[in-house]
Simulated scan of single mutants.
Amino acid sequence: MNRLGLTLLFLAVFALLVALMWWGYRNRRKRQADLPAFPAVPEGLLEQVRGGKTEPLLPPSTGVYASTVTDRSWQDRVAVGDVGFRADATAHLLPGGLLFDRTGATPVWIPAESVRAARTEAGIAGKVMGGGGLLVVRWAVGGHEFDTGFRADDKDDYDTWVPAIGALNPEVANGE
């Protein structure tokens, strides 16, 4: 086979793989069409946080928002909207909830009453670190549970963030 034939074969295989990935993602969106709308950031909160006009429970933590997945599997990335995509982010723990202010993407707001648990994990769809490299928050909305992963620049933050996030929802923290 000559160079032209090999190049065309490579391009055909590449195009087939891209088409299969697109098809799989499209089918995932169809399967997740029944997911509820995610909570919107309360009016004016994002501007207050960015302007330093709020009283956070902890200092902000910078890092990478890894993704949000369904509770079915740590690999079942949410394909509805852009919450399943990685982005640089700053996590803000506020009395009313947890805000991921993502660069180049919509912010993710997890209201305090939606929080179910916080823990460290080795990975989540879009980011595998090993050990306890990711902060993962389990939360619920509309009868569905989700896990949202965040890799902080300073892993020592996890020692204070995990219990503080868990304490956001007293009903869950008390085992009710």
Rank of each mutant, 00 (worst) to 15 (best):
23 W>S: 10
26 R>V: 06
51 G>S: 04
141 V>S: 05
125 A>K: 15
153 D>K: 10
134 L>V: 04
76 D>F: 11
87 A>V: 04
124 I>H: 03
142 G>K: 00
93 L>F: 03
39 P>W: 02
124 I>W: 03
40 A>Y: 07
77 R>W: 08
2 N>W: 01
153 D>R: 11
168 L>A: 08
6 L>M: 02
105 A>K: 13
105 A>L: 12
8 L>C: 09
113 E>M: 02
111 P>G: 11
109 W>A: 01
101 D>Y: 01
153 D>N: 12
71 D>L: 11
58 L>V: 08
51 G>K: 05
141 V>Q: 11
150 F>T: 01
68 T>S: 11
145 E>H: 09
52 G>F: 10
118 A>S: 10
38 F>W: 13
9 L>D: 14
108 V>I: 07
150 F>L: 01
164 A>C: 11
10 F>A: 13
95 P>I: 05
108 V>R: 05
171 E>Q: 12
147 D>W: 14
23 W>R: 13
176 E>T: 07
153 D>G: 11
68 T>C: 08
168 L>P: 13
145 E>R: 11
68 T>A: 08
126 G>L: 10
53 K>H: 10
175 G>W: 08
34 D>L: 12
94 L>H: 07
51 G>T: 02
126 G>F: 12
83 V>P: 01
23 W>K: 07
149 G>A: 01
28 R>G: 03
125 A>C: 09
100 F>E: 01
115 V>L: 12
84 G>L: 01
62 T>V: 00
1 M>D: 04
70 T>Y: 08
4 L>C: 07
118 A>H: 06
135 L>P: 09
160 T>C: 04
129 M>F: 10
37 A>S: 02
97 G>P: 14
46 L>D: 06
13 V>C: 10
61 S>V: 03
2 N>V: 00
170 P>E: 00
40 A>I: 02
145 E>D: 12
